[in-house]
Design a protein around this nucleic acid. Sequence first.
DNA 1: ATTATCTTTTTGGTATACCAAAAATAATGA
DNA 2: TCATTATTTTTGGTATACCAAAAAGATAAT
Lengths: 218, 218
Amino acid sequence: MRQETIENYLKTIYNLSSNNTAVVNNQKIADRLSLNPATVTEGLRKLHELKYIVYEKSYGSRLTTSGSKLALDIIRRHRIWETYLAKELGFGWDEVHAIAEELEHVNNVKLINKLASILGNPIYDPHGDPIPDEKGKIQKSNFIKLSETKLKLNYKVMGVTDHSTTFLKYLEKHNLIIGANINVKTIEDFDNSIVLICQKKEVNISPKAADCIIVQSI
Amino acid sequence: MRQETIENYLKTIYNLSSNNTAVVNNQKIADRLSLNPATVTEGLRKLHELKYIVYEKSYGSRLTTSGSKLALDIIRRHRIWETYLAKELGFGWDEVHAIAEELEHVNNVKLINKLASILGNPIYDPHGDPIPDEKGKIQKSNFIKLSETKLKLNYKVMGVTDHSTTFLKYLEKHNLIIGANINVKTIEDFDNSIVLICQKKEVNISPKAADCIIVQSI
DNA sequence: ATTATCTTTTTGGTATACCAAAAATAATGA
DNA sequence: TCATTATTTTTGGTATACCAAAAAGATAAT
Ligand SMILES: [Mn+2]
Ligand SMILES: [Mn+2]
Ligand SMILES: [Mn+2]
Ligand SMILES: [Mn+2]
């Protein structure tokens, strides 16, 4: 199996099992990687043989210790590159993901650690996602989705779970960038859309968008 | 054909036809890319179909305008990355080639131009090789090989044609780094080995090594 | 419990990238 | 020139990464 293929599967499985405890089903992997489900079934069988995952037929996959280690390594590379592109090379948070998708496969420990060191060993990437350290350790947080917030409370934007240019440009337009302070004004009973105050302006957020914004209570 | 495969062929053909005028034979491509000659024959047939090269059976290949353009673009990416790794990220001139071999395939014009701009749009890479500009234009020089030098004359080291760690470490040991001034003391009749003075020390250079060192008369 | 609906797997098939060995072609040199 | 050697091409074959459609299995919904 090509290394790049392995890496893309493992990264996806890790991201889909959130806390790395849940079992991941094939269809979601197929969706994320834009592959036919048949291809995924084959791929998972091979990854199981390579002992990167435990794959139970018609049930799902979960990473082994070695699979988890590799996954975290790729995620580290991806997020370090995203941060370096944004902080050192002047790219926008909506541009970095696509480039990092390619750079993440360049495997050179010294290079990644050097970039990390220049950045001051950051813990979060430009989208608020945590960056694993060299040993694969991740900072854990108590962040919640904007869609789970309570009325009248104050929050700080800590991250996003959608990295698409369209979404990020949309957020920028309303000053909903990382670090922004917001106040949840009303939650519409009708469709669960959220009206919030950000920089003194009222912004109406659809439930779908609110599900992609990560905040912290302040 | 995979983009990476195309890029590796074109880069190799460009490098083997030096001034990009000579026809390149299959065996040398096979050697450089560590491929079976049969594989190369197939590859060249496909590149001809894609109009990147003109391939005459049992004779050789030469790049078309479009092939040449792509080749120069990859070479630019490779050499910009080598320079960035050396100048900005603290890697040695013996380390950068291997990493650049991977990074060169990440195709993002804005990224490469940004790196180039940070470096002050350099014209030479850490091995003294010229860096094509965005349009593919290359600085041409009057450099010669150390093996072609004349007795008693003074030269400046301008580059190397071998990028292997062993060779570069060997040169470093004798202070034969880029920019070093040397004086050709004697050329042995017996084996054409060269004795030169570099930083007041005498160094004996084999003809094979002298063939990989590029100098300029001063 | 029995459909109806997802989801996964199997089957059969394509495209790419490679190689070893044999056959053909070109180059060299006596 | 004619044989020897070097290079290139053809042939037959493997491994990987994919997909479409059919079959099987699991889940949900009445
Ligand atoms: Mn990303
Ligand atoms: Mn990110
Ligand atoms: Mn190089
Ligand atoms: Mn170089």
